[in-house]
C-alpha cells in the first residue's frame, strides 16, 4: 500500500504544484497576493465542462478553458490591480481587491450552476487502470503527473532561457531598474497574469476530470493549500512551489492513509509550523529576501 499511497501523494502534490505555480508567479514577480486564483481555477473547470457539453473534443475544451482563464486573469489585473498600482504602495489594497474579485466570480458561478455539483460526461477519458510495480495507475493520474512535469519544465525554460523570461525576472528582482533598462512592465504584467490564469485553468479542468466534481466552491480548498505551498516553499520561489507542492501532497496522503482522517489538517499544519520555526522564510525563501533588500 505504501508505494500506491506515495504515488497518490505525488499526483495530488503535482496538482498542488500546478495550482501554486501560477499563484506564486504573480506573487513572486509583482508582490500581488491574488486570492482570486482559486476562483480563476474554478472558472477554468466550468469553461472546460461547458465546452465539452457543447460537443467540442476534450483537447479543445482544455485549450478554450486555458485561454479563457488566461484572459480572465489579465482582465482582473486590468480592472482590479492596475488602478491600485498607480496609487503606489498598495499591496494590502490589492489583497482586498482580489478577495472582492474572488467573491464576484464565485457568486456568478453559484448562480450559473444553481449551486449544483457538475461533472464531465462518463467515458470522456479512459478509466481502465494500468499496473506498474504493483501500483494501480489510472490514465488521468498519469496525465496529471506528466502535465505537471511539462508545465514546470516549460515555465522554467520560459523564465530562464528566453529574453521574455529574463525580463520577467528583472521586474521581479527590481521593477524600477528594469524599467530604466527598457523593460516595459505592462507587457510583463500581461504575460505573468496570462500564464498564471492559464495554469489555473489547466489545473481546474484536470481536477474537474480527475475528481469528478465541478462546483462553485471548488477553488477554496485549493487556494488554502496553494497558500500553504507558497509559505512552505518560500514566497515567490517557483522551485519552492514545486517541492512544497509535492511534499504537501505526499504528507497529506500519508496522513490520510495511516492516521485517523480527522487529524489530517492538524498534522499538515503542525508540520508547516515546524518547518517555519526552522526556516522562517520557507524552504527556498532566501533569494526573495535578497530581492526585497535590493528593492528598498
Amino acid at each position: 500500500m505504501l508505494a500506491q499511497q506515495l504515488f497518490n501523494g505525488l499526483v495530488l502534490g503535482a496538482v498542488y504544484a500546478l495550482f501554486a505555480l501560477g499563484f506564486n508567479l504573480v506573487f513572486g514577480v509583482h508582490k500581488i497576493m491574488n486570492l482570486a486564483h482559486g476562483a480563476i481555477f474554478m472558472v477554468g473547470a466550468f469553461v472546460g465542462l461547458y465546452s465539452v457539453t457543447l460537443g467540442l473534443p476534450l483537447w479543445a475544451a482544455f485549450l478554450i478553458a486555458m485561454v479563457f482563464t488566461g484572459l480572465l486573469s489579465v482582465m482582473i489585473d486590468f480592472v482590479a490591480f492596475r488602478p491600485l498600482r498607480k496609487t503606489g504602495d498598495a499591496e494590502f489594497a490589492m489583497l482586498i481587491a482580489s478577495i472582492g474579485v474572488e467573491m464576484i466570480l464565485v457568486n456568478l458561478a453559484l448562480r450559473a450552476s444553481d449551486a449544483r455539483t457538475l461533472r464531465f460526461p462518463f467515458g470522456i477519458v479512459p478509466v481502465e487502470p494500468f499496473f506498474l510495480f504493483g501500483m494501480r495507475i489510472t490514465p488521468l493520474q498519469f496525465v496529471i503527473a506528466a502535465v505537471a512535469v511539462l508545465c514546470v519544465t516549460l515555465l522554467a525554460f520560459y523564465l530562464y532561457r528566453t529574453s521574455f523570461g529574463r525580463q520577467v525576472r528583472a521586474v521581479s528582482s527590481n521593477e524600477r531598474a528594469a524599467m530604466l533598462l527598457g523593460v516595459e512592465p505592462r507587457m510583463i504584467y500581461l504575460q505573468t497574469f496570462f500564464i498564471s490564469g492559464l495554469l489555473a485553468g489547466l489545473a481546474g479542468v484536470l481536477i474537474g476530470l480527475a475528481f469528478n466534481s465541478i462546483n462553485f466552491s471548488m477553488g477554496e480548498p485549493y487556494l488554502l493549500r496553494g497558500f500553504v505551498v507558497l509559505i512552505l516553499g518560500g514566497l515567490g520561489s517557483l522551485r519552492g512551489a514545486v517541492v512544497a507542492g509535492l511534499a504537501l501532497g505526499i504528507i497529506q496522503t500519508l496522513s490520510v492513509a495511516y492516521f485517523p482522517t480527522g487529524l489530517t489538517d492538524i498534522i499538515v499544519y503542525s508540520l508547516l509550523f515546524a518547518v517555519l520555526l526552522v526556516r522562517p522564510n520557507g524552504l527556498f525563501g532566501d533569494a526573495v529576501s535578497d530581492a526585497r533588500v535590493a528593492r528598498r
Binding site: M1, Q4, Q5, N8, G9, V11, L12, V15, Q141, I207, A210, F211, N212, S213, S217, M218, E220, P221, Q252, T253, L254, V256, A257, P260, T261, G262
Partner: peptide, 20 residues
Amino acid sequence: EPSILLSDTDFTAIATRIVD
C-alpha cells in the same frame, strides 16, 4: 471509519486505504 469533508473531491488516499 474514516471521515471526509463535503468540500473534499480527492478521495484517492482514503480509497486506497479502504481497498487495502
